[in-house]
Computed example of a mutant assay.
Amino acid sequence: MSGPKIACIGIIGKADNPLHISLFPPYLSSTIEFSFLLNSCLDIFEIQQKQTSVDQDLGLLHAIDERLAAYGWLTTTGVKLLVIIDLIGQSTPNDTENQKGSGRTGLKNPDLKPVFRALQTAYIRLLQNPFYSPDDHVPTVRTAPPTLGSLQIADHKFIAKVKHLGDTWAPGAPVA
């Protein structure tokens, strides 16, 4: 079995505005569903934030179903990092053979800390870019709501790092 894998990574601004959402196979066409899931995590973020210490790692926010679970991390600037994990992953033809006699192990919070740290580091590097203005990504009061694309992070290095993390992460494996 391939094991748990990242299904979605979301970067949400301090005004609860989506800054970046990446989907990973087999969920590439599930944009609306994952936008809803990420949005539903924001209330849980707020509750967790009030009930925990200053620790950035909020851990498991909620299990969406038996397959998907949402984990959260809060930056010191109020930006929220969300990772939705597919706990089952993609199955292979040998899965039924490999699962005989072996219990499935759950995902532990420390397995995701390197991912969150790498995401936070990528975001910090983005903020250090003199051509990136985070104020351009904060919604303001307008007569018409801004389009999602106008507020999304478009930095190619940042997007590539997020994609690399989502494509290569595995529990217990080092994050590059």
Rank of each mutant, 00 (worst) to 15 (best):
residue 2 S to H: 12
residue 3 G to A: 06
residue 4 P to V: 02
residue 4 P to Q: 04
residue 8 C to V: 03
residue 9 I to P: 00
residue 9 I to Y: 00
residue 9 I to K: 01
residue 10 G to L: 02
residue 11 I to H: 03
residue 13 G to Y: 06
residue 16 D to C: 08
residue 17 N to V: 05
residue 19 L to G: 00
residue 22 S to H: 06
residue 25 P to I: 02
residue 26 P to A: 08
residue 36 F to M: 12
residue 37 L to Y: 12
residue 38 L to V: 10
residue 39 N to Q: 09
residue 40 S to Q: 10
residue 41 C to A: 10
residue 41 C to E: 02
residue 42 L to Y: 04
residue 44 I to Y: 03
residue 46 E to Y: 00
residue 48 Q to E: 12
residue 50 K to R: 13
residue 52 T to V: 14
residue 53 S to N: 09
residue 55 D to P: 00
residue 56 Q to V: 03
residue 57 D to E: 10
residue 59 G to F: 05
residue 61 L to I: 05
residue 62 H to R: 11
residue 62 H to W: 07
residue 68 L to R: 02
residue 69 A to V: 08
residue 69 A to Y: 06
residue 72 G to Y: 02
residue 74 L to K: 05
residue 75 T to H: 04
residue 77 T to S: 15
residue 78 G to L: 12
residue 83 V to D: 00
residue 83 V to N: 01
residue 85 I to L: 05
residue 86 D to Q: 00
residue 88 I to R: 11
residue 89 G to S: 05
residue 90 Q to D: 11
residue 92 T to L: 11
residue 92 T to D: 08
residue 95 D to I: 04
residue 98 N to M: 08
residue 98 N to E: 13
residue 99 Q to I: 07
residue 100 K to D: 14
residue 100 K to Y: 15
residue 101 G to Y: 05
residue 102 S to A: 12
residue 102 S to Y: 10
residue 104 R to C: 13
residue 107 L to G: 04
residue 111 D to H: 12
residue 112 L to S: 01
residue 113 K to S: 11
residue 118 A to H: 10
residue 118 A to Y: 06
residue 119 L to I: 05
residue 120 Q to I: 01
residue 120 Q to T: 11
residue 123 Y to E: 11
residue 124 I to Q: 15
residue 125 R to C: 13
residue 127 L to C: 14
residue 127 L to Y: 13
residue 127 L to Q: 15
residue 129 N to I: 09
residue 130 P to K: 08
residue 134 P to D: 15
residue 134 P to W: 09
residue 135 D to E: 15
residue 136 D to F: 13
residue 136 D to P: 01
residue 137 H to P: 01
residue 139 P to F: 12
residue 142 R to I: 00
residue 148 L to V: 09
residue 149 G to T: 07
residue 150 S to T: 07
residue 150 S to M: 04
residue 151 L to H: 03
residue 151 L to A: 03
residue 153 I to K: 03
residue 153 I to Y: 07
residue 154 A to D: 09
residue 154 A to P: 00
residue 157 K to Q: 11
residue 157 K to L: 12
residue 157 K to E: 10
residue 158 F to E: 00
residue 159 I to N: 07
residue 159 I to A: 13
residue 160 A to Q: 15
residue 160 A to C: 07
residue 162 V to R: 02
residue 162 V to F: 05
residue 165 L to E: 02
residue 165 L to Y: 03
residue 167 D to E: 15
residue 167 D to R: 07
residue 168 T to H: 08
residue 169 W to D: 00
residue 174 P to Y: 01
residue 176 A to G: 09
residue 176 A to F: 04
